[in-house]
Design a protein around this nucleic acid. Structure first.
Lengths: 334, 334
DNA sequence: GAGTTAACGTAAAACGTTTTACTAAATTCA
DNA sequence: TGAATTTAGTAAAACGTTTTACGTTAACTC
């Protein structure tokens, strides 16, 4: 069964292809097509189930109603939840999302950008990594809207939406200090992205402002792509060897590894040992005792990202770039 | 900066568009293009960074090197993990994935199929819901490869890959019985999809085979799209009112709600109360005590799905449909 | 040295739309 | 009434590829 084309509709309705096209695209009035013809054509379209070929459409118009979403890893719950929200909101506005994961590989990220480019996606939502600045700048000179989220790139002049990582981290540490903690550790990763460094800076600043000396010994930076076993052993070394009374985990998967360590070495969270995890996770509320956490405002981030995209897509002129920093929320559980 | 087209390359190389196209598509030898020309053209392509317009390509060839993935909800960790695996494997074979979530809505599922159709995706991977049988059958008459996974549709004659839900459920219940449990509850959902009914059937059969009477009182079917609060209250009613010594949760999110209930009512998992959750989740290993679980073979499912797709895409003739059932693994933790 | 074949390549149609520029008839205007 | 305008619609180019069918030469065969 050959799929229908606009031509088939035109022939059946005994009008020109142009007329059908105008009707499909809601330009019938403006192009003064008579009510009678409009109805006839619409009826035929309805009955035949004709759907325009989007590929042909894209080729002609140069756009696709598709937004490309590039994230680190869809199986990470932070990203999958935000992807779902973005997808949802975009969908309601008539846009579809194509997503792909970079796995923190510069090459894969570049390839993805190229793929999206040759598919003529209308706009890009990217949680970026260092090393793709040039590629992003090319998109910008192409006049494609680009929204970075979660992480910013200093050398790229575009829109950014993210949580206030510095303050969230700062407040977490302050809350430890208010509880009387003195030996506060940080477990973070060595990927060189802004949101991670901000969390680190917040940690340092909070210590400093409260007159506690910073010590390299209390900070573990696990290597990004390593096996979990390795991460666990690093964290174990930290927790076993030092007289630590509080730990901030800079990502949720680090916290999960950390909790596994605590279980192994049978160290209990309680009055003399506190934990906060960055990025919430279902496991944290359920844990006994419940784990305090920094919740990123997923809903607001998704909403802001989509709003920025849409305003750019609908505006003829280049809009001013925006940097939207949304406060994160420290949830103290116990 | 206008993006380059094949024509620009042809002009620069002083050859015809056809020649450039042959070279790009590796048909140069076959079409007897001289080595000198090949080299010249390739050099120009390399230096200019020219990338073929995939849209034009798709329009002409009718395919896209894109596989459509339709799942229930990307933010559910079962789906996001499998999506990641499928994406990965497809990517290595030169295919891209477009995914979208149906949220268990028949309309949205139909819309997605239509969208994918008008984007000319080469093949479909679908975790289906009842009500889209016809739409899928249309794809099949269009000769598009369709692989169902996780859930099967009895009225659709195509490929299916999934875990052995019946046996997994059966074994779970048997393991309870071996531990001496007598009052075994099942918490499941009311969506009418095969894998859920199979889990239910496995539960019933295991009881029967072991001479335990089935009782409707011990089965809770929560309504699919309801608020979690409602689910929690239903489960609470079950666990508080009955003398239950074991529970099988038919999905991981039900188990998570269940664990919240246990925490609330302060019921402990231990010698006289056992729990098994279907589909693993990070929270389960971490939980105190750890939660036993039925692990679906994600890796094998993803691999099988991709293999089936690729063999269909590369075969000229219609292949025999395959139903691949992969055993799930019961992980007893404590 | 005429006929074949191989080597090297190209022109042009086709994919299914959108959109620009146009026409013919009907209506309005002064 | 004749010119101007409006109404109702269309022909054809363009988007960037792939692919079919077709040229030229030059070399080979006998």
């Amino acid at each position: 069964m050959k799929t229908l084309s606009i031509k088939d509709i035109a022939v059946q309705a005994n009008v020109s292809i142009t007329t059908v096209s105008f009707i499909i695209n809601g330009k019938a009035k403006e192009k003064s097509i008579s009510e009678a013809v409009i109805e006839k054509v619409e009826k035929i379209i309805e009955e035949s189930g004709y759907k325009p070929n989007q590929i042909a459409r894209s080729l002609r118009t140069g756009n696709s109603n598709i937004i490309g979403l590039i994230i680190e890893d869809i199986s990470n719950s932070f990203f999958s939840r935000i992807a779902r929200l973005i997808e949802d909101k975009a969908y309601k506005r008539g846009y579809k999302i194509i997503y792909s994961s970079t796995e923190n590989s510069v090459e894969k990220a570049k390839e993805l950008i190229n793929m999206f480019k040759s598919r003529k996606v209308d706009a890009y939502i990217i949680s970026p990594i260092k090393g793709i600045e040039e590629d992003i700048n090319m998109l910008l000179t192409d006049n494609k809207p680009v929204i970075l989220f979660d992480r910013n790139l200093p050398d790229v002049d575009t829109n950014y939406v993210g949580a206030d990582h510095f303050n969230a981290s700062y407040q977490s540490i302050e809350s430890f200090i208010k509880q009387g903690k003195k030996n506060i550790a940080l477990v973070t990763t060595d990927i060189d992205v802004q949101q991670i460094t901000e969390r680190y800076e917040g940690y340092k600043k909070a210590l400093e402002d409260n007159g506690i000396a910073y010590s390299d010994d209390l900070v573990v930076k696990v290597h990004f792509n390593q096996e979990e076993a390795e991460t666990i052993s690093q964290i174990k070394t930290l927790l076993e060897s030092k007289k630590i009374d509080a730990v901030l985990f800079a990502t949720n998967y680090l916290a999960i590894s950390g909790l596994k360590v605590l279980k192994q070495i049978n160290k209990k969270i309680g009055d003399d040992f506190a934990v906060i995890a960055y990025d919430d996770h279902e496991a944290f509320e359920l844990h006994t005792p419940s784990i305090s956490t920094v919740q990123q405002p997923l809903e607001e981030i998704a909403e802001t990202v989509i709003k920025l995209i849409l305003s750019q897509l609908s505006s003829k002129t280049k809009l001013e770039n925006q940097q939207v920093i949304i406060p994160a929320k420290l949830i103290i559980r116990n």
